[in-house]
Design a protein around this nucleic acid. Structure first.
Lengths: 188, 188
DNA sequence: ACAGGCATGTAAGTCGTTACATGATTAG
DNA sequence: CTAATCATGTAACGACTTACATGCCTGT
């Protein structure tokens, strides 16, 4: 009997899926789209990760088949145990895992380049964040009725996190470009 | 001949290591500490990932042993090819990989709980970010001479990214808590 | 008819975490 | 002398990405 106790803590993917299925039935394809569009700015997942996980969740009794549709479409819904697990996760699992922002990692090494080139790279980074910010803001001020229900409202609240985070980084990029100029001057 | 071309793009870890070794010789232990303390707020890595990667980088001629010290300490330095690779990475590889913030993922599902509990969880999240922010600000205003050289200055610039990002999330948490209250009122 | 999007899955390989394992040096 | 910290590594497992593979509907 080498039965291992199983996932002690991390595994965000399964809880992301479970959380979405707790409110309404969705197919693997739907979930993929949801991760891409909605949860995407804090956690991403591709379909090749989602389909196997649906299988595991079903095997564990946390979700169950709900119905079928055209083109082999299969929707799943959270079971009672699945919904309970989402609540347990929210209440008990304090994730706290580190942040990962690959593009900012490069910033630590910009100093190896000439100031002009550094400033150009910072501008590229600014553009990346400004573009995301614009997208989020357009969504926020679009024609969605964010107060329609609690779930919709939660999405609006999380969208605001993205807006503030991206706005912070756009402002940072402007500050950083000026700062690189200042540094070059001081040391010249 | 099934010689695969190798890593086309991602692989941030190797470039993080290479970037650090491009400025000065460091041991695996030093690198682990550096990832933990300095690069940590945008990219993390444990020693069990670093030691094998040092072996691979050495095998590829991007780094080489520099010297040895007590307790088996081995320092490596970037070779000419290694330094060139860092510059190529900065100039050509536009990372753009998605952001990952596990703790914010939970926010999408808070609506399943009572408003009072939601607000408590948001407070926990606020505390997490406020504490990080305080740490970063203390560092920034501490007694480090950030203008001492270009590398030091780059670290100050990246520290500012962390400060602005965490500040944005602290402010977000305050906004979110108020917003949850407002939502509960509207729908009651 | 055919293009585009819907829809599901598998395989191979890399990345990342946790746990295991060991030992040397230094400060108190 | 003994605890803390320095220091390096491996193993097992789980997470994630990219590529492969297939086929069905619907709108034009």
């Amino acid at each position: 009997m080498s039965r291992v106790v199983r996932n002690s803590l991390p595994v965000s993917l399964r809880h992301g899926i479970l959380g979405l299925l707790a409110s309404r039935p969705l197919s693997g394809y739907d979930l993929t789209r949801e991760f891409d569009l909605t949860l995407g700015h804090v956690w991403s997942a591709g379909h090749s990760q989602i389909y196997p996980e649906l299988g595991r969740l079903a095997a564990e009794g946390l979700i169950e088949p709900f119905d079928s549709g055209p083109r082999g479409r299969k929707r799943y819904a959270a079971t009672k145990a699945g919904r309970a697990e989402v609540l347990r996760w929210l209440r008990e699992d304090d994730p706290g895992r580190e942040l990962r922002v690959e593009s900012l990692l490069q910033g630590f090494f910009y100093w190896m380049l000439e100031p002009a080139e550094q400033i150009a790279l910072i501008a590229r980074e600014r553009a990346r964040h400004a573009s995301k910010l614009a997208g989020y803001e357009a969504l926020a001020t679009g024609d969605i009725d964010w107060m329609a229900n609690a779930e919709q409202h939660a999405q609006r609240i999380m969208l605001e996190a993205g807006i503030r985070y991206e706005r912070g980084l756009v402002e940072w990029a402007d500050w950083a470009a000026a700062e690189v100029g200042r540094g070059a001057e001081v040391r010249s």
